[in-house]
């Protein structure tokens, strides 16, 4: 039987990729954030996942506003990064696990999530940066992936409650998968930040702490807020917490926290890293 080894969450701020590229991890600006990762590396070496189910959001690479799915599940054997238009390095490709993707899609649709399936899907920094942070310097990623994209771009967005339920449906799929894979669940993005408008630069450590404190023990607490509430509390791009909420659902009913790091600012963002194990 497959085993869900735990969940890894981190921010995907594009500037992190630049810092990695320049080797700035020990510079004073970056060190407090990168100091959150030795424990992640140690943990991944202990639990040895070979598959990652990754909840993330597209930033105008794979999807445009002509067709924008609320929930999209990758069902490919390979996912490439591509030019995102604003000077990021091109990141390496990912091997997919299409059979597991289709198993998850079957469960999701059975559970009345009418997802979009993508046999071709480019993936952007929202996937690549958390992987660069988790497995620095590797030639090939040690895991195959199932990427699940949540619309955090164009309102109306799916509610926090809906995203948690989506994650729980993915958990049912993983719990019923007959393979012997070791699966890590990943949620990327956030935490509080706002790039646009006269409130640009807004962050909210109180709300972030509320999220971090409750993700392990009471994720339903995060669903009390509407999307509008989350934008108010967390910023227009803080809604990426939806990826974390869905990933928490996919981890399973109980969880305990084994590691946390939180730092303001990385670029315009309150950056966080969290590891949870099933309880």
């Amino acid at each position: 039987m497959a085993e869900i080894v735990g969940a890894y969450f981190t921010s995907h701020v594009p500037a992190i990729g630049g810092a990695i590229h320049r080797g700035d991890q020990q510079e004073p600006y970056w060190k407090p954030f990168f100091d959150g990762f030795p424990r992640v590396h140690e943990w991944l070496a202990e639990v040895k996942p070979d598959v990652a189910v990754v909840f993330n959001n597209d930033h105008g690479l794979n999807f445009f506003l002509d067709k924008l799915p609320t929930f999209a599940v990758g069902a490919a054997d390979r996912y490439d990064n591509a030019d995102e238009g604003w000077g990021l390095p091109l990141y390496k490709s990912f091997a997919g696990h299409a059979a597991l993707s289709w198993h998850i899609i079957e469960q999701l649709v059975h559970d009345e999530f009418d997802v979009t399936t993508c046999q071709k899907m480019t993936v952007d920094h929202a996937l690549s940066i958390p992987f660069e942070l988790a497995w620095p310097g590797v030639e090939e990623w040690p895991v195959r992936i199932v990427p699940i994209a949540i619309n955090t771009v164009q309102h109306p967005l799916p509610s926090a409650k809906r995203c948690l339920a989506l994650g729980r449906s993915v958990h049912r799929a993983l719990a019923g998968w007959q393979g012997d894979e070791r699966i890590v669940v990943i949620g990327t993005g956030g935490l509080s930040h706002q790039l646009d408008g006269a409130r640009a630069g807004f962050m909210n450590p109180d709300y972030d702490r509320f999220c971090l404190d409750n993700l392990s023990r009471d994720p339903d607490a995060l669903t009390a807020h509407s999307i509008h509430d989350i934008v108010r509390l967390s910023g227009t791009q803080g809604v990426e917490i939806l990826n974390w909420i869905a990933a928490r659902g996919a981890l399973g009913p109980g969880a305990h926290e084994i590691h946390r790091n939180y730092h303001i600012p990385i670029s315009n963002t309150a950056a966080a890293t969290l590891l949870l194990e099933p309880a």
């Binding site: 309102h155 646009d196 509407s226 934008v231 227009t236």
Partner: peptide
Amino acid sequence: VNDNGRDAEPIPGTTLFDG
């Protein structure tokens, strides 16, 4: 009308990218 169907108070300095 926000996602919960309630009238939502505007958020200062913030534009929701909606329909």
